[in-house]
Design a protein around this nucleic acid. Structure first.
Lengths: 104, 104
DNA sequence: AAGGATGGTAAGTAATAACTTACGGTAAGT
DNA sequence: ACTTACCGTAAGTTATTACTTACCATCCTT
């Protein structure tokens, strides 16, 4: 969902202020319909809401959607940390693991 | 990163216990090399680490990687919430927005 | 009512990401 | 030493996703 760069740019832009589709597209390297499609996805995910202003549609972020997403992630993290704790209490390990990238 | 279903399954599986590549592949609808490739990506992201056990490679989750990811997200969220607060203090809005999906 | 502005949708194309088969390489068992 | 088990990487294919162009609808202006 937030993996796409264009989508992140849109969210970033809306974080500063609400904006119309055309305004958003003007600041991005993609066409207006592409922005419309991203906004549709974001709206279905509950992350943005729109309101009509004449023929324009103003989009803004939806705090509730982000809060919901946040608590989902918090849920996952809670479980993960519990699993880590359980594993470490058991394994009590060596330390010479291989890290592929990101050297210690 | 965690947008892919197979990748989420792998992480989910590793949350319960460390596992070898073959074990992971056995529980998934994809081939073993596909799992290897996912593990490579996860390792480069610092989310898993591996250790050699004979010819097998045991993968397990890397708590530090998840913690780092977590704080990045927390950072974003902090900024977003600040923006929300600022916007609401200003706008003081109507309420008849359109929500595309997810009815109120 | 006509014209211009704004934006959603459809259909097709392009770019990206996931997956498969094939191969080679190392470690353990015989 | 030979064989078997296990895994990583390369190369190519398939599937998914993002994007574009074209079109239509709505609202506002005159």
């Amino acid at each position: 969902m937030l993996g796409d760069a264009t989508r992140r740019s849109i969210v970033e832009r809306l974080r500063h202020a609400p904006a119309s589709v055309g305004e958003l597209a003007a600041g991005l390297p993609v066409s207006r319909p592409a922005v419309s499609q991203h906004l549709k996805v974001l709206a279905e995910a509950g992350l943005v809401v729109s309101s009509a202003a004449g023929t324009r549609r103003i989009y803004r972020l939806a705090p509730e959607g982000f809060a919901a997403l946040r608590s989902e992630l918090d849920q996952l993290w809670g479980d993960a940390m519990a699993a880590f704790a359980a594993a470490e209490a058991e394994g009590e390990a060596d330390g010479n693991d291989e890290r592929h990238d990101r050297p210690a």
